[in-house]
Design a protein around this nucleic acid. Sequence first.
DNA 1: GTGTTTCTTTGATTCAGATCAATGGATGTA
DNA 2: TACATCCATTGATCTGAATCAAAGAAACAC
Lengths: 247, 247
Amino acid sequence: MPQAIAVDLQDCGDCPIRHRAVCARCETDELERLDQIKYYRSYEAGQTIVWSGEPMDFVGSLVRGIATLSQTMEDGRTQMVGLLLPSDFVGRPGRRGAAYDVVATTDLVMCCFRKVPFEEMMARTPHIAQRLLEMTLDELDAAREWMLVLGRKTAREKIASLLSIIARRDATLNLRAQDAKIVFDLPLTREAMADYLGLTLETVSRQISALKRDGVIVLEGKRHVTIPDFERLLDEAGDDSDGGFLS
Amino acid sequence: MPQAIAVDLQDCGDCPIRHRAVCARCETDELERLDQIKYYRSYEAGQTIVWSGEPMDFVGSLVRGIATLSQTMEDGRTQMVGLLLPSDFVGRPGRRGAAYDVVATTDLVMCCFRKVPFEEMMARTPHIAQRLLEMTLDELDAAREWMLVLGRKTAREKIASLLSIIARRDATLNLRAQDAKIVFDLPLTREAMADYLGLTLETVSRQISALKRDGVIVLEGKRHVTIPDFERLLDEAGDDSDGGFLS
DNA sequence: GTGTTTCTTTGATTCAGATCAATGGATGTA
DNA sequence: TACATCCATTGATCTGAATCAAAGAAACAC
């Protein structure tokens, strides 16, 4: 059982629930009610936050760190079905148990709400259900985009797709200037990337080496990535557009 | 542009919106308001109902027939990302355009609501957003389950997974007795199955032949399928459980 | 009937990625 | 310093599914 550890965040300003998950159109008193039922939890890298099938008594959003959602077959084959970055929502109002394992990839901090009070509040506050619906539709779009990656792309395209998604999310999160060079640290091991892409870790390693050799990416060490030409990367990913990310 | 054709449905009892999509907990007057803004549309097999990226001015649910959601790359590779059977909801309240192509696989009938009035009603009626959130979470689970199929299963397991999903949905829809022999007609061509499974149509054909040879399924003609032992099929699919379908 | 189209099956061959196997850094620690 | 441990790379070989190619079966038109 993961153990909860108290965290001190000075200000709710850090809590993405306030900004993205729930409150885009909320009134002040709703914010206050949310504040009253929220609490923080932290987990260490490698800890499983929730096991697939187990009851989950909270919902919340990721404040710091990286988590993954994954499904595993009896024989050990696993497929990652989601990557959670700060500001992402975790949990399913109205559902009993978790549908997949949620695992902390790095040390992380979550802002949580006990499920019952949150659901009561949701019932009283139409905006919240609407906001969650919007977010869930976004997740559904992302999952379906990933189905195209898994079903139809080559290993090289898969790697390029993953890198472009991480680069995009990183840039959005850090409000980077649009024309700045894209630089980031890979938040995943080769094995985790393989689980996300439906490949083996050897294939991931080989394709990363190939992209590096061809100048699509620049690697310093094993994790630090620079993208000299984002359009080029998108091209390698087989994407027909940049999703409005670049001008 | 698909042309709308008037359809006569005797009774709203046929309209799954009433039963599943929206109204599980609705009051009578909400049902009446929904009735006032709804209309029917029919499409012929092969028609594209919505093109990816185009504006979509309605939402609705499938009354009769089969439709598919799919994404296509510039070079023609396509991946089906969803299979719509009667009672499934189509459209995304709060969104401008469609994210994927929606194509009628058979002749079909939809029960539609113009988007703006539907959204207005949603804003006034908290139950509707909550019901749609539940449905969207179901779709998200299904999409993520499919990611495991696409990323980690073998061709044979993929075919068995697809057959078990169709069998399950068919049984649920037709309220078949749990112990009845499962018999249905495949609603998809081999090519469509291939697009769903991330395979080629030749591989689909070969694996279906293999499952038939091994007695996992019985085929009459090209489409009519009998499942003599559903547990066996699930086993071939690599599923660890039957999802509560059988006792 | 004969052709035409659409869907499907089956066979032969190729190839991308898996698997098996070593080796190469980092980092930590006794 | 030696020696684990963890993560990543690279090489050799194998294999499952793709690709290339042909032919069968059903539905429909003329």
